[in-house]
């Protein structure tokens, strides 16, 4: 069973599998199409695998609707990606393929844009995404130590999601609350003047939610 979807760069593929019968977030996993150009990389209990997600019809329809909202114009790609990510939580390869098809551009073009901007993610975020501000003001007031503590406590690195899908860790540059540096965001809630000692309490607050 797939436990989480991981980023391409961090993947050391052990096998390419057909997990057609397994379900992941409402999407079935297709038999690997050798001619496909983009895959989703996932970790299973056996190790990392390269798979092809089969999106549910419902999701495909949703993506197509978003594209339609912007008249399927290629120039609106970034707006489409924003809305799609907002609706689905992330932009895996298969979603990008649907968008490319609707806007009549190549998947490579969509992939190029998705990977260019740090706001877009191909990995699902946790239910409580944790972002640590590593802007200069927070950096000089010790953000790095706070980040290290989050990594240690959650056992994940920046860009990953915890195995239970609860927390994901990311860095962001300046939320404009420099008076409260160092700043940590959990979802949209802002925690100010966070010290490494305060990390545990923040995580605890979401443990049972």
């Amino acid at each position: 069973m797939i436990s989480k979807i991981i980023s391409e760069e961090k993947t050391n593929i052990i096998e390419e599998v057909n997990l057609a019968s397994k379900k992941e977030a409402g999407d079935t996993i297709q038999k690997l199409d050798k001619t496909a150009t983009m895959y989703t990389y996932a970790s299973t209990e056996k190790g990392n695998v390269k798979v092809k997600l089969k999106l549910s019809d419902e999701k495909i329809k949703k993506i197509q609707e978003i594209c339609q909202l912007f008249n399927n114009e290629a120039g609106e790609l970034i707006n489409v990606l924003h809305q799609t990510q907002h609706a689905l939580g992330y932009l895996p390869a298969e979603v990008q393929e649907v968008i490319a098809h609707s806007l009549n551009v190549s998947t490579a073009h969509v992939y190029g844009v998705v990977t260019f901007y740090s706001y877009f993610t191909m990995i699902p975020k946790g239910r409580f995404p944790i972002s640590i501000c590593t802007g200069t003001a927070c950096y000089v007031r010790g953000a790095e130590k706070v980040l290290e503590e989050f990594k240690r406590q959650l056992g994940i690195v920046v860009g990953e999601t915890s195995a239970d899908g609860k927390f994901s860790l990311s860095c962001l540059r300046c939320v404009g609350a420099c008076g409260l540096a160092p700043v940590v965001l959990v979802g949209e809630k802002v925690y100010g003047r966070v010290s490494p000692d305060g990390v545990k309490a923040i995580i605890e607050a979401y443990k049972d939610k």
Binding site: I78, L81, H82, Y117, S118, Y119, F120, L172, R173
Partner: peptide
């Protein structure tokens, strides 16, 4: 409005 997506 046009939205940026986190590229300095």
């Amino acid at each position: 409005l046009r939205y940026g997506a986190g590229a300095f």
